[in-house]
């Protein structure tokens, strides 16, 4: 939700917030501004058609073929899809992507929102914290992966070193090399890099007028109650937005896993992006593009479900009020 709106609402300047989508309004026969609308949409649509629609048609069409990029394509029907769903590796990767999406959406975003709420109350040094939390987003993934490889290493790693020094030898692991620990370790590495989402949420949070909290304070609401009854409802829009983005990132997750484990051991940390990349490398464009198609379709479904769920819940809660 946007700050200005809240301020205006608070001052009674607007009776009701504007509709989230103008499509909610009754359909006008033809918008009198149609020329300008087209003009405004032209740049974005041109780029989108060239860089998304055309390539995606290419991806979609070739996903039904066997093609190495050099010889003529051979139509295979659903052969690539069938092969993928029969493959243990792909099914595992698919599951891992769903887990990534859930963890990023349902754990990372609450962590980021929590931090935004804490920092919005301006504890000592909050500006410094805000900057530091963001720094990992600036460091290249290559450098981050190098460090975490060293943290998790079984021979000289820092994590095992810590455990040994506090007498917990039995808890040491070859973190990225064991079935039980590899996937959690890879997720853990990304989970706490909340910087970007935290900044986005914090920007919105700072827009909520201080007077709301002061009023609640006088009514005797404690900090947690204030957050639950003022912040969370007012940030609903931005929370759904960031959650959607985080889940999308989870579905197409690739880079840090590729850099740290390349999907190993025995595909335990594999994700669809890694299988896709491996097929590209082997010049199996048909199968790679089938994965691309699956990824987009399932991601779309996950996100549509999320928006539908929150949209419904939101309207339900509004009627309760």
């Amino acid at each position: 939700m946007h700050s200005v709106e809240k301020v205006l609402a608070a001052r009674g300047l607007v009776a009701k917030t504007g509709p989230r989508f103008s499509g909610d309004r009754p359909m006008v026969k033809r918008n009198k501004n149609w020329k300008q609308i087209i003009l405004f949409l032209l740049p974005v649509l041109t780029l989108f058609l060239l860089y998304f629609v055309y390539p995606l048609i290419f991806v979609f069409v070739t996903s039904f073929t066997e093609w190495n990029g050099i010889s003529a394509m051979q139509f295979k029907g659903l052969g690539n899809y069938k092969r993928l769903f029969l493959s243990d590796t792909f099914r595992l990767s698919f599951r891992n992507n769903i887990l990534w999406a859930l963890v990023l959406g349902l754990v990372q975003i609450p962590l980021a929102a929590g931090m935004a709420m804490v920092l919005a109350r301006k504890p000592r040094g909050w500006k410094t914290f805000r900057t530091i939390y963001f720094l990992p987003n600036v460091i290249s993934q290559v450098a981050l992966a190098m460090m975490w490889l060293a943290v998790y290493n079984a021979e000289y790693g820092m994590l095992n070193g810590l455990l040994n020094s506090v007498g917990l030898e039995q808890l040491t692991h070859n973190w990225l090399g064991e079935y039980e620990t590899a996937f959690p370790a890879v997720i853990f590495q990304q989970l706490f890099y909340i910087g970007y989402f935290m900044i986005v949420i914090l920007a919105s949070r700072m827009g909520i007028p201080e007077s709301f909290y002061e009023a609640a304070e006088i009514d005797g609401a404690n900090v947690l109650q204030q957050e639950a009854h003022i912040t969370i409802p007012m940030l609903r829009g931005i929370l759904v937005t960031t959650m959607t983005l985080a889940m999308a990132f989870g579905m197409r997750h690739f880079e840090s896993t590729y850099l740290m484990t390349n999907g190993g051991p025995a595909h335990q940390t594999s994700v669809m992006g890694i299988v896709l990349y491996r097929n590209l490398e082997a010049l199996r464009f048909g199968e790679a593009n089938a994965i691309g198609t699956i990824l987009i379709v399932t991601g779309g479904v996950v996100i549509a479900l999320l928006r539908w769920f929150f949209g419904r819940k939101a309207s339900a809660s509004e009627t309760v009020q």
Binding site: F21, G23, V28, N31, F48, P55, L245, G273
Partner: peptide
């Protein structure tokens, strides 16, 4: 966001779905 025209929500959803695309898949095109 600020105008009304046919299929605007569809258009938005199509564009936003682009977030999901693993761009490494698009190297050749």
């Amino acid at each position: 966001a600020r105008e009304t025209f046919r299929f605007q929500n569809l258009l938005l959803n199509i564009i936003v779905a682009g977030v999901l695309i693993p761009i490494i898949a698009l190297m050749v095109p």
